[in-house]
Design a binder for these strands. Structure first.
Length: 497
RNA sequence: GCUCCCAUCGUCUAGUGGCCUAGGACGCCGCCCUCUCAAGGCGGUAACACGGGUUCAAAUCCCGUUGGGAGUACCA
């Protein structure tokens, strides 16, 4: 095959190992899932391994509910992991809260080798020092000022004797870090922008950068795919590799994905746009649509090609083709794709997808009615949530049937309703074609009504609504008894006013 | 403030120096089809942020400006 595109992708040798490492402090959001999708697709593309690692080092924010919800959502969208909670793996456990010993070991090594030191300064003392320095004309420096870096032994002993709490800080070397980001290219960051960062809390528990770096090494990850917000944290992670003597040939490569922002360009948040994947699931979106749309936010399969399956994405995915611009989340586009996926589904499958929504709305779902109803609504739905509105009139018990759009029935409706009733009452064959014929003869030819005006009242009478699936098929599915009964009901409604 | 990143239709994007009078999709508008609403078909609206270079040739390379975004935690 010479039609293959020029090979400019990310060169890969050896086994690929990627991960998604969410903090379980709430629902997985669209950014998490987009990152997971790209990371997963890259691993799958190269027959590698995809890991789920839960970053719950902050006990005050992590919850078991969120931990469970994370897995549930990942299952829902179909991003499966080869190692992680539930499936285990050679580097278990995969919950950072259960890996304390690993971090403590790394911390001890770092302190023993002098790469980490105890810092006793409180936040107040640090703020006071920085304010004083600025008052004397010094340029403000980012973060911690390095005060405890070169404490004398006597000072340390005094602090220790006083029982002052401390955190372990990393002794960031001078110079700068340059690395090649798979999506952004070469990045250089001057270490003057990176203060001696904290590795632990004052209770000794490990912080994100330490835990992530240690685990990425321990779990032999080869490619770190994450959000652009972590770009600036990369030199710290690299410095930790160096300090912990992690062999260069094992250092993972980094790929920082552009952020997903709300439709106003501001950060996506609970207040601004819907961020939770759970929300989309609960509002009738399909996993295939979510994945397809999320893939489009920063990646494209080929020119003029927007609809594709995850399998197609995996076959073509390449980190080197990921966009560098932040992408706005567009609900309209997601809905359009959801509609496309619905239309592309096999009828039986769509029926299965619709059933729970109908049941949740309180309808007893007759399999035969569902099977016959699906083709009537397949091209009319954008979200699965619309199923009850569209098909409810076929499933509702007669005594609960309501003329939702009763206001559309007027005195003028009486004639077409009565004529319809008469025409249908004696119709020999009950099928959509003869039904249509009979109604056209009775209303259009008989009463001289425009089709639009003729069928409107009938539609409302039979389905209860102004908007419905095709009328004649609907009448056929409803059956003669129910149809006549509803026409009678509508007539009574009209005459009773 | 400082550092880093980014910059093509309203939005997502194609574009890797000539194929670009810039292509597709969503949205929006119009027409067709039509029993409603969709779907479908056809057509339209609409962009290379700005200024300098480099080059025979720039949306594509370089510099600057402007505008966005991110980072600057004992969150992740």
């Amino acid at each position: 095959m010479s039609g293959e595109p020029a090979n400019k992708g990310v060169p890969v040798s050896g086994e690929v190992r990627t991960r998604i490492a969410p903090a379980p402090s709430g629902d997985l959001h669209v950014g998490n899932v987009r990152t997971a999708l790209f990371s997963w697709a890259f691993a799958r593309r190269h027959q590698g391994h995809f890991l789920l690692r839960v970053e719950d080092t902050d006990a005050s924010r992590a919850t078991d509910e969120a931990f469970a919800a994370t897995q549930e959502i990942l299952h829902w969208v179909g991003l499966d992991w080869d190692e992680g909670p539930g499936v285990g793996g050679p580097y278990a456990p995969y919950r950072q809260s259960e890996r304390r010993a690993v971090y403590d070991g790394a911390l001890a090594r770092l302190e023993a080798s002098g790469h980490a030191y105890r810092a006793y300064s409180t936040a107040e003392e640090l703020a006071a020092r920085k304010a004083a320095a600025v008052a004397q004309g010094a340029k403000p420096t980012p973060g911690y000022d390095g005060y405890d870096r070169d404490l004398t032994d006597a000072q340390r002993a005094a602090y220790a004797a006083a029982g002052r709490p401390y955190v372990l800080r990393f002794r960031m070397p001078a110079g700068s870090t340059t690395f090649t980001d798979l999506v952004r290219g070469e990045i250089t960051i001057d270490h003057r922008q990176i203060p001696d960062f904290a590795l632990t809390r004052s209770d000794g528990s490990p912080l994100y950068v330490l835990a992530a770096a240690v685990d990425d090494m321990a779990m032999r990850l080869t490619h770190i795919v994450r959000g652009e917000d972590l770009l600036a944290a990369t030199p710290r992670q690299l410095a930790l590799y160096e300090a912990l003597d992690y062999p260069r040939e094992r250092w993972p490569q980094f790929a920082h994905l552009p952020l997903i922002v709300a439709d106003d360009g501001k950060p996506l948040s609970k207040r601004n746009g819907e961020v939770s994947l759970r929300w989309y699931r609960d509002h009738g979106f399909l996993p295939a649509a979510m994945l397809n749309y999320l893939a489009l936010l920063g990646w494209s399969l080929a020119p003029d090609r927007e609809l594709f399956s995850v399998e197609e994405m995996v076959a073509a995915f390449d980190l080197a083709r990921v966009s560098r611009n932040p992408a706005r989340f567009d609900l309209k586009k997601l809905e359009a794709i959801n509609g496309e996926k619905i239309r592309a589904m096999a009828e039986e499958e769509l029926g299965e997808q619709l059933r729970p929504w109908l049941q949740a709305a309180g309808y007893a779902v007759d399999p035969a009615v569902l099977r016959a109803g699906v083709p009537l609504v397949q091209s009319r739905m954008v979200r699965l949530t619309e199923a009850p509105t569209l098909l409810g009139f076929l499933l509702v018990p007669e005594n609960e049937f309501r003329l939702v759009d009763a206001d559309l029935l007027t005195a003028d409706s009486e004639a077409p309703l009565q004529a319809s009733r008469d025409a249908l009452a004696g119709l020999p064959a009950w099928a959509s074609d003869p039904i249509e014929q009979a109604l056209r003869v009775a209303l259009v030819e008989g009463l001289g009504l425009k089709p639009r005006r003729a069928f409107g009242p009938v539609r409302v009478a039979v389905t209860g609504r102004r908007i419905s699936p095709p009328l004649f098929e609907s009448i056929e599915l409803l059956g003669r008894d129910r149809t006549l009964g509803r026409l009678d009901g509508a007539l009574a409604e009209v005459r009773g006013r």
